[in-house]
Simulated assay, not measured.
Amino acid sequence: MSTLWVLGAGQLGAMLKQAGTPLGIDVRPVDIEATDELPLQANDIVTAEREEWPETVATKQLATHNNFVNLATFPQLADRLTQKQWLDRLDLATAPWFPVEADSSAQHAYDTLGERVLMKRRRGGYDGKGQYWLKQAENSEIPDDWKGQAIAEQAINFDEEVSLVGVRSKDGEKYFYPLTLNLHINGILYASISPLKRLDQYQSKAETMLGKLMDALDYVGVMAMECFRVGDDLLINELAPRVHNSGHWTQAGSNVCQFENHVRAVMGLPLVSAEIKNQSMMVNLIGVDLDYQWLSIPSLELYWYQKDVRAGRKVGHLNFCTGNLTVLETALDRLNMPAPYPQAIEWLKANLPA
């Protein structure tokens, strides 16, 4: 079996390596700052744990390999302008938007999109960063350094945030996990829960939307689609051409997690429809210290990323999976964590099936 190289050596690369080991696949995440010559072979496969990367010794070696899967897709979806253009071209619903040009004005934004407009940097800016609100009531103006570097979106009063994780093979075979309900606080994902019976009515629509995009891009591997639910409609908010934080629950809740599915797809191995085990929840660990007492909580699985703890930094996550809802409720009661975690815990309790 060929080696699978991963551009990027963060937590997603580590979890891809973990998923590849039982399959007998040598998965090698590569630090983008590495300067060593990589022993790439002609039949090796290259994937990425991130949408974009600087040109370094390591990334240049990987990005020039003939078997870099989805190489042409990454720049198209990493740039929010071209990402939106793809969605418009495919008639996939998003928030109304326009590109912020050198001559764009705040008044044009208000006239076009309403009194509250969210600007997003075209590149980067995840987890609530790279965003700037224009509010007509505050006479906000577009900063000069945002002109030509951003898109502007209409503020959406959504009912809730959901995401769909899907996988596509080289021959176009596609499978999807159940929709996941997500809670963001200050733009950062804090908690997810899946499956939820009440979301089943949107599953087919979401699969059609993501499947249409993956087919158009001839995409291979796992892709995530984050959506706003507004009534019975789904509006695409962001796309991630990689394994995604909102799919971490699949490590505990499915016979084939998102990481194994990505490895299977890019390596050309068989795909199957995932069997969902039980009710799952995920809690992101954001800027909190490691506490091994978490391991005493029934149904909890700990993933620690071995990063230095800093405010706002993702340093790990907790997965929970069981068919006993009382066990899940008790587990949440035993999570003694600082603000804003009480908000996330109460949100999870409120969304557990009755």
Rank of each mutant, 00 (worst) to 15 (best):
residue 206 A to P: 03
residue 337 M to T: 06
residue 305 Y to R: 13
residue 50 R to N: 10
residue 140 S to V: 03
residue 132 Y to V: 05
residue 220 V to D: 08
residue 207 E to W: 02
residue 77 L to V: 15
residue 183 L to G: 04
residue 108 H to L: 13
residue 236 I to Y: 03
residue 16 L to C: 10
residue 27 V to L: 12
residue 122 R to H: 09
residue 216 A to V: 03
residue 126 Y to D: 03
residue 29 P to G: 10
residue 230 V to F: 01
residue 348 L to I: 05
residue 75 P to S: 07
residue 332 L to T: 08
residue 109 A to Y: 01
residue 157 N to D: 15
residue 313 R to A: 09
residue 211 G to W: 06
residue 257 C to S: 15
residue 195 P to T: 07
residue 213 L to P: 04
residue 159 D to N: 14
residue 193 I to S: 03
residue 19 A to V: 13
residue 58 A to R: 04
residue 301 E to Q: 14
residue 106 A to H: 03
residue 178 P to H: 09
residue 338 P to I: 08
residue 150 A to R: 05
residue 309 V to Y: 11
residue 281 M to C: 13
residue 9 A to Q: 10
residue 316 G to E: 00
residue 332 L to S: 04
residue 204 S to D: 14
residue 229 R to N: 10
residue 336 N to F: 11
residue 279 Q to A: 07
residue 299 S to T: 15
residue 87 L to G: 00
residue 146 W to I: 05
residue 195 P to R: 07
residue 293 Q to M: 01
residue 322 T to A: 03
residue 160 E to T: 05
residue 183 L to F: 12
residue 132 Y to D: 06
residue 185 I to T: 11
residue 20 G to E: 05
residue 107 Q to P: 00
residue 139 N to I: 05
residue 181 L to V: 01
residue 284 N to L: 01
residue 69 V to P: 06
residue 17 K to P: 02
residue 306 Q to D: 15
residue 224 A to R: 00
residue 37 E to Y: 09
residue 323 G to A: 04
residue 181 L to S: 07
residue 2 S to H: 09
residue 104 S to H: 03
residue 118 L to R: 02
residue 87 L to H: 01
residue 226 E to N: 13
residue 167 V to C: 12
residue 305 Y to H: 10
residue 172 G to A: 07
residue 54 P to H: 13
residue 253 G to I: 04
residue 192 S to Y: 06
residue 95 A to I: 01
residue 101 E to T: 15
residue 3 T to D: 01
residue 335 L to S: 14
residue 280 S to G: 14
residue 159 D to V: 10
residue 98 F to T: 08
residue 197 K to V: 14
residue 95 A to H: 05
residue 4 L to M: 07
residue 209 M to A: 14
residue 188 I to K: 14
residue 130 G to F: 09
residue 75 P to N: 07
residue 296 S to M: 12
residue 239 L to Q: 06
residue 282 M to Q: 04
residue 279 Q to W: 02
residue 272 V to F: 09
residue 119 M to S: 03
residue 194 S to G: 07
residue 263 V to I: 14
residue 264 R to V: 09
residue 317 H to W: 01
residue 156 I to W: 09
residue 189 L to C: 10
residue 37 E to L: 15
residue 287 G to D: 04
residue 161 E to V: 13
residue 309 V to F: 00
residue 12 L to R: 08
residue 147 K to P: 05
residue 158 F to Q: 07
residue 315 V to G: 01
residue 229 R to I: 05
residue 6 V to I: 15
residue 25 I to F: 04
residue 284 N to Y: 02
residue 177 Y to M: 03
residue 118 L to E: 00
residue 175 Y to T: 00
residue 266 V to M: 02
residue 291 D to Y: 08
residue 341 Y to D: 09
residue 225 M to K: 03
residue 231 G to Y: 00
residue 76 Q to F: 10
residue 225 M to P: 11
residue 210 L to E: 00
residue 44 D to A: 09
residue 192 S to K: 13
residue 333 D to C: 11
residue 27 V to G: 03
residue 353 P to A: 11
residue 162 V to L: 14
residue 325 L to C: 05
residue 162 V to H: 07
residue 80 R to Q: 09
residue 279 Q to L: 05
residue 175 Y to W: 13
residue 260 E to V: 04
residue 41 Q to T: 08
residue 247 G to Q: 08
